[in-house]
Nucleic acid binder design. Structure first.
Length: 619
RNA sequence: GCCGAUGUAGCUCAGGGGUAGAGCAUUCGAUUCGUAAUCGAACGGUCAGCGGUUCAAAUCCGCUCAUCGGCUCCA
């Protein structure tokens, strides 16, 4: 659900851009791009050119691929058009007239767009340049790349607008073409593939600069880069794409996340499960995954003439656990959690670091409950989610409530009950939310939570889904007070989403500077000379025995080099020990956040470490 | 999977039909050093893999794999 590719989600922190004006600039920018393309590359067909969060794109149909050099040339041409201050004119047109013009130009995509606009709607076209100069309507474009050609330019597009009044209103120093990519006509991979040129555009150079800075910042924090630098994890060609190796330091962070998870879940009334990684294919037939989820599943494997399936989800296993015994209403709610590792087939082109992989571990849980328990259970999940996210440093959320989609299972009244339960829980929690009408799963409504990271990007992690489908398919039951057999409601929820993705988000959020409680190495001791090595070892050992993650720099490098390495490895606390410290039995402490903080005793240091660890903050 | 780009030492990268290069890292030697890089030497590569063109391929061509930017999809 979260697009792992975050560039488009980056919202630059700029001095209050005017959204309406930006929209116009970007929209016109897209037109100017299309005009430039058709001038320099005659025969290219236009399709659509909408605005995006940071700019615009335009999709073109052209046999030859656009090269990075082409983008530069196009940018130059766009600047010419901007410099020429050509008027942008809105004009209401009749369907017949515009259809004829489009047909004459053989712009079949435009014709398709026109055909899709309902009868009776006002049709407008936007013209760049002076019609009078061209003499006739339509594309009067020249392939002449000389600068003299610009005065004759005239271009139009069927478009609802709005636009700026003149190409001169686009700030020539506040836009840039960014990349070219493949995109399908109307987003359907069965349709022809078009070439999409992405651009960014702003009101002024400062805003553009802020956006580029934000982009740099995102690049600096890229978890793939940091993961390699800090030796946290790897993904290896030899093993296959999308399969994650957690290296000792990354594994330490994961262990700490898991320990936190275990502790909070046990405290929250959950019980923990372990279930297998494969199961007989029949289980997946019963659950419906074999029909509805086949394309995301690995191929079946044959074991003694039986078909087995590597698991893409944990739910059926939890359901079977429920079903293994007769349940009373007194047993409910059952809250069962598992760090369940699942494998999903993902097309090779979509894999992305830790954010999109083929094998990952969900912090999965399923709650089986009575209808009247539903709202309270949801609220419990919201509380646990809030506590967890705030402990990991995320305090801003965006909440979505997704309701019944067209294609769905289950009776109306039970959908209504479940949706109301979600709403009630959100209200009880006091969270405002956005309703995503029809965005629910086919088996029930859901709440999704997006968290905001340190540079303003939103990431979806948590999801809470009510499920009517699996209890039905597996005929789950409990014995009601009146002795009748009733169907429990099932809630599926994950807080981190997947440990891999959450780890990736953590790395990017902290830019590798983990808070003390999560830092793989909390303290490194730097002996100035060989004579202090023993003292450093002794201190490290004492720290380790008291539960801190401490180690001695064994390199024998000079102090400056050791400090540099500790900094590059983002180790929160470096302790320098020289002759003076050994003599005085003290420690010279340097934190990554504050630099040299002076001389402390071991007890003082411990006290400071404990404060930061308890606060889950950096030291 | 599709479109485009990329793949050279552990890492970051240069080179470009005819002995494979640098910095960092590693190892060894010297240095024993006080808050972000001590000096020197050595080691290290079937130039992603397979096939083709050529007297000769890391270099040109084709296929495969992986990665990157997107599309579609998604925890």
């Amino acid at each position: 659900m979260v697009s792992p590719v975050t560039e488009s989600q980056v919202t630059a922190d700029v001095s209050a851009p005017n959204p309406e004006k930006l929209e116009r600039i970007r929209h016109t920018c897209a037109h100017v791009l299309a005009m430039a393309v058709q001038t320099l590359f005659p025969g290219t067909k236009v399709t659509i050119g909408p605005t995006t969060d940071n700019g615009f794109y335009y999709d073109f149909d052209r046999a030859e691929p656009f090269t990075p050099d082409d983008l530069k040339t196009l940018e130059t041409q766009m600047r010419r058009i901007i410099k020429a201050k050509l008027p942008v004119v809105r004009e209401v047109v009749s369907r017949e007239a515009i259809a004829a013009e489009i047909a004459q130009l053989d712009e079949n995509y435009k014709a398709e767009i026109l055909a899709g606009i309902p009868e009776g709607e006002t049709l407008t076209r936007y013209t760049i340049g002076d019609v009078a100069l061209s003499g006739i309507g339509g594309f009067k474009l020249t392939a002449d790349k000389s600068k003299k050609a610009q005065a004759q330019q005239f271009w139009w597009d069927l478009c609802a607008g709005p636009h700026v009044e003149s190409t001169g209103d686009i700030p020539a120093d506040a836009f840039a073409l960014e990349s070219v990519a493949g995109a399908y006509w109307r987003g359907d991979e069965n349709n022809p593939q078009l070439q999409r040129i992405y651009g960014t555009a702003w009101e002024n150079a400062e805003q553009l600069k802020a956006y580029l800075h934000q982009k740099e910042e995102a690049k600096r924090r890229d978890h793939r880069k940091i993961g390699k630098e800090l030796q946290l994890f790897s993904i290896q060609e030899e093993a296959g794409g999308g399969l994650v190796f957690w290296h000792p330091k990354g594994a330490t962070v994961r262990r700490l996340i898991e320990e936190y998870w275990r502790q909070t879940h046990l405290a929250g009334g959950y019980e923990l499960l372990y279930t297998p990684h494969v199961a007989n294919l029949n289980l997946w037939k019963t659950s419906g995954h074999n029909d509805f989820y086949r394309e995301n599943m690995f191929d079946v494997m044959e074991v003694e003439e039986q078909a087995y399936q590597l698991k893409p989800m944990n739910c059926p296993f939890h359901v079977l656990t429920y079903k293994s015994d007769l349940r009373s209403y007194r047993d409910l709610p059952c809250r069962w959690a598992e760090l369940g590792t699942v494998y999903r087939y993902e097309r090779s082109g979509v894999l992305h670091g830790l954010m999109r992989v083929r094998g990952f571990t969900q912090d999965d849980a399923h709650i089986f409950c009575l209808p009247e328990q539903l709202a309270a259970e949801i609220l419990g999940v919201l509380n646990l989610t809030e506590q967890t996210m705030s402990d990991f440093g995320f305090n801003n959320y965006e909440v979505n409530l997704s309701t019944r989609p067209e294609k769905s299972v289950g009776a109306d009244d039970i959908w209504e009950l479940a949706t109301q339960a979600l709403i009630q829980a959100l209200n009880d929690k006091g969270w405002s939310y956005v309703i995503d009408e029809g965005g629910g799963a086919f088996y029930g409504p859901k709440i999704d939570l997006k968290i905001q990271d340190a540079i303003g990007r939103m990431w979806q992690c948590s999801t809470i889904q009510v499920d009517f489908n699996l209890p039905e398919r597996f005929q789950l039951e409990y014995i009601a007070p009146d002795g009748s057999r009733q169907r429990p409601i099932m809630v599926h929820r994950a807080i981190f989403g997947s440990l891999e993705r959450f780890f990736g988000i953590l790395i990017e959020n902290y830019a590798g500077d983990f808070p003390l409680w999560l830092a793989p190495v909390q303290v490194r001791l730097l002996p100035i000379g060989d004579e202090q090595r023993q003292y450093a070892q002794a201190i490290a050992q004492q720290l380790q025995q008291r539960g801190y993650r401490a180690a001695v720099d064994a390199s024998g490098d000079r102090l400056n080099k050791q400090i540099r390495n500790a900094e590059l490895e983002k180790i929160p606390v470096a302790i320098i020990v020289g002759k003076q410290e050994v003599t005085d039995q003290t420690l010279s402490v340097r934190t990554r956040q504050q630099g040299d903080i002076g001389t402390l005793t071991l007890a003082d240091l411990q006290a400071r470490l404990d404060v930061a660890i308890a606060a889950k903050s950096q030291i």
